[in-house]
């Protein structure tokens, strides 16, 4: 085996541990290294990262496609802001999680009937439908209509800069708790059942796994985390309106999940950073075609991801082998 191959093997085996350590160190050091404006962007990136962790649980491990996670963000943010003045922000975010879990369970029930790309499109419709709802005249008295809602969470800080730092640590703590929680959830009885259901629902059922229950639960849990992330993010920004969490966020979350490896949890936060920063970069390259740049870059990444093993083999001069029966 070449040196390169051995190195690749080491990274593959220890990659996740290394990445986790790197992400943690960076997260703790960040507010000291980059105080001021940039901290706010990073707080938002972590919120999106929570959303991607939720998506990895559902899609990466559970095999159910969701292009509707912006809907959980939106629902969570509205529930949090509507309830926060009465029950306090922390409790409101918790209720936001529960509300998002209920929506998730509903989608999970639909997911029992349609799979794959169809489920992806159905959830996309949820993102579109929920986008429309806060503006409806019947709901406007609660949702603030098209002018949105303001809420300033009470924090033990007075200056805007100090508030930003507080938010950073709060969001980071929640993100850590959720990520560690998902990590252990995946290694629990439920996690094994979830992956079994994804791999082969028929076999999982024959082994005693209630695949329907597991799939619906996964959707509810994933929705809850995304809803919590939405509530937090709303708190960080202090203002929400119907277009705070547009359907494009669903797309960005899904892409963030795909390009950072569907089954690597710490990498989710790299995905979150991509959501915050890449559109700006793409816009800097060309404002008219920024989404085209984004789409093109995504295709290039996917191409590398799919064909990397073959390209690597060609690079190291070994015969490329294709599995028998691979004709797709």
């Amino acid at each position: 085996m070449s040196v390169f191959g051995r190195l690749a093997g080491l990274v593959a085996a220890r990659g996740n541990a290394l990445l986790t350590a790197a992400v943690l160190v960076a997260a703790v050091a960040y507010p000291f290294l980059f105080p001021g404006y940039a901290i706010n962007s990073m707080t938002m990136a972590i919120c999106y990262g929570i959303g991607i962790v939720a998506l990895k649980l559902l899609t990466g491990y559970g095999g159910q496609f969701s292009l509707g996670h912006s809907a959980f963000f939106a629902l969570g943010s509205y529930v949090a802001f509507i309830l926060a003045p009465t029950i306090g922000f922390a409790a409101a975010v918790a209720v936001a999680g529960i509300a998002a879990a209920l929506l998730g369970a509903l989608l999970g029930l639909a997911g029992l009937r349609i799979k794959g790309h169809y489920l992806g499109l159905l959830t996309f419709m949820v993102a579109l439908a929920l986008f429309q709802m806060p503006k409806a005249s019947a709901l406007a008295p609660i949702t603030g209509g098209s002018s949105g809602l303001f809420y300033r969470a009470p924090l033990p800080a007075t200056t805007p800069a100090a508030r930003d730092v507080w938010w950073y640590w709060i969001v980071l703590a929640v993100a850590l708790a959720i990520t560690v929680g998902v990590h252990f959830l995946l290694r629990s009885r439920f996690g094994r059942a979830l992956q079994a259901s994804r791999d082969n629902a028929l076999a999982a059922g024959a082994l005693g796994v209630d695949t329907a229950l597991v799939d619906v639960s996964a959707f509810a849990v994933s929705g809850a985390f995304a809803g919590i992330a939405g509530g937090l993010l709303a708190g960080v920004i202090g203002y929400i309106s119907y277009d705070s969490f547009p359907y494009t966020l669903s797309i960005l979350l899904f892409v963030g999940m795909t390009v950072t490896g569907a089954r690597s949890l710490p990498a989710a936060y790299l995905g979150g950073a991509l959501i915050v920063f890449v559109p700006t970069w793409a816009h800097d390259i060309t404002s008219r075609l920024s989404w085209a740049v984004y789409g093109g870059a995504l295709l290039a990444l996917l191409y590398i991801q799919v064909n990397a093993p073959r390209l690597l083999q060609r690079l190291t001069g070994r015969e490329a082998t294709r599995p028998v029966g691979d004709v797709s």
Binding site: H117, I251, F254, G295, L299, L302, R310
Partner: peptide, 16 residues
């Protein structure tokens, strides 16, 4: 050669 996830992401890219 990619799985359903990759194909779906590719269509998202196409969409954009």
């Amino acid at each position: 050669g990619g799985n359903a996830l990759v194909q779906f992401a590719a269509m998202i890219a196409l969409f954009l």
